[in-house]
Design a protein around this nucleic acid. Structure first.
Length: 567
RNA sequence: GCGCCCGUAGCUCAGCGGACAGAGCAACGGACUUCUAAUCCGUUGGCCGCAGGUUCGAGUCCUGCCGGGCGCGCCA
C-alpha cells in the first residue's frame, strides 16, 4: 500500500512532503542534542526560487522561526541542515542569504520524475483533493433576452475551465446555467417581439420604451408573421403575450446553447427560474427566512433584514403588488442548490452584480448555511480593441458584440485562451488583431505549436522505425542538459499548477503554466537532438518529448482549447 | 457620497510576506545541408501610482490620498 502511494503520488508533492518532514525531524534531533532550544516549528513553507542559483526548492523556516528559538537565522538554518536526514533525491542542501535553506534536486530525482510521468501517461498527475465531494459551478446565466455577449463569453471560459480543473482534482462537479425565464425582463422581451410581429404584418406598432431593439427580434417577428400569419392577433392579449414569451425564450435559449456549444462550453443543468415559481420554492425560502426572524413587513412589502448580516440596507423580497423580486427568486434558487447537496457553490457573475454578493451571502447565512459555502467570482469587463482602436460595444441601440461575432473573427481556441490568460479580476483588453494573428505573437499558437511538434516527432520516429520506449527502458539519469532538466522539472510542477488553480479558483494559472511548458520544450527541442544515434539517449529524450505532449494536451484540455497534431 | 476591481518595462500582463522585480509583444543583433524557424539565443528597457504604517524583510498586508473602470432600483 505505502509503495503504491509513493508511486502514484506526484513526485513533486511527495518531495515537498518529504522535505518538510526532514526539516521537522532535523529540528527535533537538534533540540534533543541541545543545539536548538525548546519551541515549536510553525507551518513550513517551500517555494520555488526565481533565481536558479537558489536551488530548486527553498525554505524560509529559519528566518520565520528565529524569534521563536532565539537564534540568528543562519545559525538556526545551519543547525537544521546539519541534522537533516539523507535522501537520494537531493544533490545538495545549503544555507544561503539571510538564512534560507536551499534544496538542489539530484539526477536520481529527475530520473524518477521522468519515470513516473512517462509511466502514468494520461493518468498523470493522480490527484484526489476533492475525493468525490459535490461542488457546483454556475456561470454565464445570461438572460434569455438576447445573444451571449463578450463578458459572458469570458465568464463562460472561466467557469467551464474551472469546472474541468475541479473535476480533475477529484471533485464531483456540476455545471449549471440559470435561466431567468420569469420576471419583467422576459415580459419586456415578449412585448418587444409582439411589436416586431405586428410590424412584420404591416401594422403600426412601437417597441415599448425599454424594449429590446436588436434586429434578432425583427427577424423573429418576420418569421412568426410568415409561419403564423395573423392567427396570433386573434388570441386574448394574455394568451398572446404568453405565446410570445415562451416562443422568444425558447428560440433565444437555443441560440445561446448553440453559441456556447460552438465555444465548447457546456452545462449539466439549465435551471429555470420559472421552476422556482411553479414549485413554490420562493414561498418556502421566504418562510424559512421568516422563521429565522430575518423578515418584516413595511409599506405593504415583505423585507429581508439583510443589514443584520452585513448588508448596507434591507432588501425587498415581495413587492407591494405581491410579486416576488429577483432577489427572492435568487435566494430560493440558492436554497435549492444547497438542498441538492452541494458542499460548495461557486457563482461566476459579471461586474454589474457585485452589489448582489453581500445580500446573497447574507441570505445563505440566514437560511442556516455557512456564508463560505457560497463563493462568488466577479469576472471583470472586457474591452475589445483592434490594434489600439477601441471597438464600440454599447448595448443600447442594439449595438453589441456577441459571442458569435467574436468566434467568427478569432475562433474558439484563441478566444478561450485569451480569456484564460488573465486573472478574472483584471479588466481585459482583448486584442482582436492579435488573437486572429497566426504568428508567433499569438500565445495560443505558441503552446499549440509545441504540442504539434511532439506529434510530428512521433510521426518521424515511426518513419524511422524508432519505437516508443517502454517505461522500464527509459533512463532519465541520461538527461543532464540544463534544458532537459528544466523541462522535466516544469512537467513535475503540473500537479501544483492544477491544485493551485483549483484551490484559488484561478484558471489563468493553467494558461501560464502551459506557456511555461511550451517555452521549456522549445528550448529543449532546439538544444537537444531527440531522435539521434544513441538508442538509450534517444529513448530517454523521446520519452521526455512524449511526456511534454501529454502534459500540454491535458493543460489545453483543462482550458477547453484544442491540441492539434499538426499546424 | 458609498461599494467592488485595477494602477508593475514603450504596449498587454504575471508575480503563494522573502534573496538582485519577471514574461510575452514591440526595438536592436545573431542562429535553418539535420526531428516543423508558427522556433531558439542574446541586448536594450523599471522612483512596482503617491504618502505613511506593520515586519528581521512589503510590488504583496493595513490606513489615507491620487488616477481609471464598473456598480449602487419594490430592474434582472
Amino acid at each position: 500500500m505505502r509503495r503504491e502511494r509513493a508511486v502514484r503520488e506526484p513526485l513533486w508533492l511527495h518531495t515537498k512532503r518529504l522535505l518538510k518532514d526532514m526539516i521537522r525531524g532535523a529540528v527535533a534531533r537538534a533540540q534533543k542534542a541541545g543545539e536548538i532550544p525548546a519551541g515549536t516549528v510553525g507551518e513550513i513553507h517551500l517555494e520555488v526560487p526565481q533565481n536558479r542559483e537558489h536551488g530548486d526548492l527553498a525554505s524560509n523556516i529559519a528566518l520565520v522561526s528565529a524569534g521563536e528559538f532565539g537564534l540568528p537565522p543562519r545559525q538556526l538554518a545551519q543547525a537544521i541542515v546539519d541534522r537533516m536526514a539523507q535522501t537520494d533525491l537531493l544533490a545538495r542542501v545549503e544555507v544561503a542569504g539571510p538564512g534560507f535553506i536551499n534544496f538542489f534536486l539530484g539526477s536520481n530525482w529527475y530520473a524518477k520524475c521522468l519515470e513516473q510521468i512517462y509511466g502514468q501517461g494520461e493518468e498523470f498527475p493522480v490527484l484526489d483533493w476533492g475525493s468525490g465531494r459535490k461542488i457546483q459551478v454556475e456561470y454565464v446565466s445570461a438572460n434569455p433576452t438576447g445573444p451571449i455577449l463578450v463578458v459572458q463569453a469570458r465568464a463562460g471560459a472561466v467557469g467551464d475551465s474551472l469546472a474541468r480543473i475541479l473535476r480533475r482534482c477529484g471533485w464531483d462537479v456540476q455545471r449549471e446555467f440559470y435561466v431567468n425565464d420569469a420576471g419583467t425582463q422576459v415580459e419586456m422581451l415578449a412585448r418587444s417581439l409582439e411589436a416586431r410581429y405586428r410590424q412584420a404584418l404591416g401594422e403600426e406598432a412601437e417597441l415599448p420604451p425599454a424594449g429590446y431593439p436588436g434586429d434578432y427580434l425583427v427577424r423573429m417577428g418576420q418569421q412568426l408573421a410568415k409561419e403564423e400569419g395573423r392567427r396570433l392577433l386573434q388570441m386574448s392579449p394574455e394568451e398572446r403575450l404568453g405565446f410570445f414569451r415562451q416562443y422568444a425564450v425558447e428560440r433565444i435559449l437555443n441560440w445561446q446553447k448553440s453559441s456556447l456549444e460552438r465555444y465548447g462550453v457546456t452545462f449539466d443543468e439549465w435551471f429555470r427560474e420559472s421552476q422556482l415559481h411553479q414549485q413554490g420554492m420562493i414561498e418556502k425560502a421566504a418562510q424559512m427566512l421568516e422563521q429565522a426572524g430575518y423578515t418584516y413587513e413595511r409599506a405593504g412589502a415583505l423585507w429581508f433584514a439583510s443589514t443584520r448580516l452585513g448588508d448596507d440596507k434591507d432588501r425587498v423580497l415581495r413587492r407591494r403588488d405581491g410579486r416576488w423580486t429577483y432577489l427572492a427568486a435568487d435566494i430560493a434558487y440558492h436554497l435549492h442548490k444547497f438542498e441538492r447537496g452541494f458542499e460548495r457553490v461557486i457563482d461566476i457573475w459579471g461586474p454589474d452584480h457585485h452589489g448582489h454578493i453581500t445580500r446573497m451571502k447574507a441570505a445563505v447565512q440566514a437560511l442556516g448555511f455557512s456564508k463560505d459555502a457560497l463563493e462568488v467570482l466577479i469576472v471583470q469587463l472586457v474591452r475589445l480593441v483592434r490594434g489600439n482602436q477601441l471597438v464600440r460595444m454599447a448595448k443600447r441601440k442594439g449595438e453589441y458584440v456577441s459571442i458569435d461575432e467574436l468566434l467568427d473573427e478569432v475562433g474558439s481556441d484563441a478566444a478561450r485562451f485569451f480569456f484564460l490568460m488573465r486573472t478574472v479580476d483584471s479588466h481585459l483588453d482583448f486584442d482582436l488583431d492579435l488573437a486572429r494573428a497566426q504568428t508567433s505573437e499569438n500565445p495560443v499558437y505558441y503552446v499549440q505549436y509545441a504540442h504539434a511538434r511532439v506529434a510530428s516527432l512521433r510521426r518521424e520516429a515511426a518513419k524511422a522505425q524508432v519505437k516508443l520506449p517502454s517505461p522500464e527502458d527509459v533512463r532519465g539519469e541520461l538527461l543532464t542538459d540544463s534544458s532537459e532538466r528544466a523541462l522535466i522539472k516544469q512537467l513535475a510542477l503540473f500537479p501544483e499548477a492544477i491544485l493551485g488553480a483549483a484551490e484559488q479558483r484561478e484558471p489563468h494559472r493553467i494558461a501560464r503554466y502551459a506557456l511555461e511548458v511550451a517555452t521549456a520544450f522549445h528550448a529543449f527541442y532546439t538544444r537537444c537532438r531527440i531522435l539521434g544515434n544513441d538508442p538509450q539517449l534517444t529513448a530517454a529524450r523521446f520519452a521526455l518529448a512524449c511526456c511534454t505532449g501529454t502534459v500540454l494536451r491535458q493543460a489545453l484540455y483543462l482550458m477547453g482549447v484544442s491540441a492539434p497534431e499538426s499546424m
